[in-house]
């Protein structure tokens, strides 16, 4: 089985978000980048398929050369090879077109992407890859088993979960639950050394229009101070929630 894991390179969850150039660009100054958490769960699940079922795992990112350390980290965790599509990721649709092209080129059986990236929160790339490559698609995936060309997937739904059966080629939008938090791997020295020797191929992009353009960013208005209510006076809290906030 050939697996492609899509890796989005995103600001670390503790990052303060600032903008530059008249609030039109995300300011990467002082920001540390990581593998998108949803992708890290997917990558870890891919490692299981590699170790238990002999799958071959390639990771891919659409982005500039600055994303290569993130791809190297994925190689250090255990992926066999990496691909970088050499263009700036502008919008979800154009990224999906680039990735769909990689999927077709490499004839991957299983594409693991994240339910959502934590930077632009598009929640669209995996579904679009599936649509563009005519593969089956399951979103919000919290469990995945593959047996030959059949797959059993557990999907989170509002208020519960459902189990679906499908077949390869398959694209999933993954999240926590694919593996547990405690299964995530920190690259060790040996992994880091080996990663240096693994292939990281840079491919040129295909022509793809940006269907949406980011024109400006805004930060939320600063919040007023908290109103403290004494623990002995909870009637006051009920009163405030009813009469002032009007939420109960």
């Amino acid at each position: 089985m050939k697996i492609l894991v899509c890796i989005s390179h995103v600001p670390d969850t503790t990052s303060k978000i600032n903008f530059s150039e008249g609030d039109t660009k995300f300011d990467t100054n002082g920001v540390q980048f990581v593998i998108n958490p949803n992708d890290e769960f997917g990558l870890t699940r891919a490692m299981w398929f590699k170790e238990k079922q002999g799958a071959n795992v390639t990771v891919v990112n659409v982005g500039g050369a600055d994303t290569e350390p993130t791809l190297r980290k994925a190689l250090a965790i255990g992926a066999d090879a990496a691909i970088r599509v050499n263009t700036l990721a502008s919008d979800g649709f154009s990224v999906a077109k680039q990735l769909a092209n990689v999927v077709k080129d490499g004839a991957y059986d299983l594409v693991i992407a994240g339910r959502e990236s934590i930077d632009y929160n598009g929640g669209m790339v995996p579904g679009m890859i599936a649509g563009l490559t005519d593969a089956n698609f399951v979103n919000n995936c919290i469990g995945l088993e593959v047996d030959g060309t059949s797959a059993t997937v557990i999907r989170e739904i509002d208020g519960g979960k459902e189990t679906v059966s499908t077949s390869l080629p398959l694209v999933i939008g993954g999240q926590k639950g694919l593996v547990e938090e405690s299964d995530l791997r920190i690259p060790n020295m040996r992994g880091i050394m080996m990663a240096r020797k693994k292939p990281l191929t840079v491919v040129e992009p295909i022509d793809a229009n940006a269907e949406t353009t980011s024109v400006k960013f805004e930060k939320p208005a600063p919040k007023g101070a908290v109103k403290l209510v004494s623990a002995d006076n909870l009637d006051e809290l009920v009163n405030l929630l009813h009469n002032e906030a009007k939420v109960i």
Partner: peptide, 23 residues
């Protein structure tokens, strides 16, 4: 923005060749 709508919207975007803005 239900789980189901977020699931189908990207497929619909490809089908209609439409730009999609979420959230």
């Amino acid at each position: 923005s239900s789980a189901d709508s977020k699931y189908l919207a990207p497929l619909l975007a490809v089908g209609l060749n439409a730009g999609y803005a979420s959230n």
